[in-house]
Design a protein around this nucleic acid. Structure first.
Lengths: 119, 119
DNA sequence: GGATAACTCCTAATATTTTAGGAATTATTT
DNA sequence: AAATAATTCCTAAAATATTAGGAGTTATCC
């Protein structure tokens, strides 16, 4: 999967949220200072070339929608983190987070029970 | 904590590994194609300005060593990932990884037992 | 001790990322 | 229908990141 730069990803996040988005909609969702219309347009073109979004005419304007799912991209980002800092091992990350108190044992147990129930 | 760019981080990783490093040592540790001596020097200067490394003369040459610990930087990167994709929640990341089969229940239970023993 | 290599500091070329303007076209408002 | 606003496409300026050369200095080798 291609990498996204920070600015590209910011636009992509909005597309993921909206699922179908006109440039105008995207600008609405973005925090101040709002980027110019054409700035968003440029990023969408890049995202299209990276095959992250597709577009189609709706009436006489283009609507953009995700080609890559947010989940897939998130997974890829995790993979990157695992690769860089944890020898690719999710267990290592997990241990680290417990040791660093990002997660504590009770939380993990509760979650495990919940996740088991969902099976 | 300041962000590091990709190339800066690559150099930083070597400094973390070596703990005390001359530019020469750093180049030795880097994969082909080896960067030029001065390239590494430039990144070390940036890392110094971002207060990631300090340097001192040893004999007549500078040795570089980490000011920020690798662990702290890793933690920060995780925090970034949590913020971007998991509303800042480690539990959310954990659930996601279990659901996406990066982690399975047995692994988690084994690890939990090990971690408990270490207390 | 002159030549060769290593190191330091300063500087800049190159590449990439970010931002957005101009011109043409189409729609919308009055 | 003339003026105003929105959209599209092309293009490039501005900002940032990456790479490394040049010149001077210091150390090392023969």
């Amino acid at each position: 999967m291609k990498e996204l730069t920070k600015a590209e990803e910011q636009v992509m996040q909005v597309v993921w949220t909206l699922k179908q988005a006109f440039i105008k909609d995207i600008i609405d969702q973005m925090p101040e200072p709002k980027p110019a219309y054409n700035t968003v347009g440029t990023f969408l073109k890049i995202l299209e070339s990276k095959e992250f979004v597709s577009r189609k005419k709706l009436g006489n304007t283009f609507v953009y929608s995700p080609l890559v799912e947010r989940k897939a991209y998130t997974k890829n980002s995790i993979k990157g983190l695992l690769g860089k800092y944890f020898e690719g091992s999710a267990e290592n990350l997990f241990s680290f987070m417990v040791q660093e108190k990002d997660l504590n044992m009770e939380q993990v147990e509760d979650l495990m029970n919940k996740l088991k129930d969902n099976d």
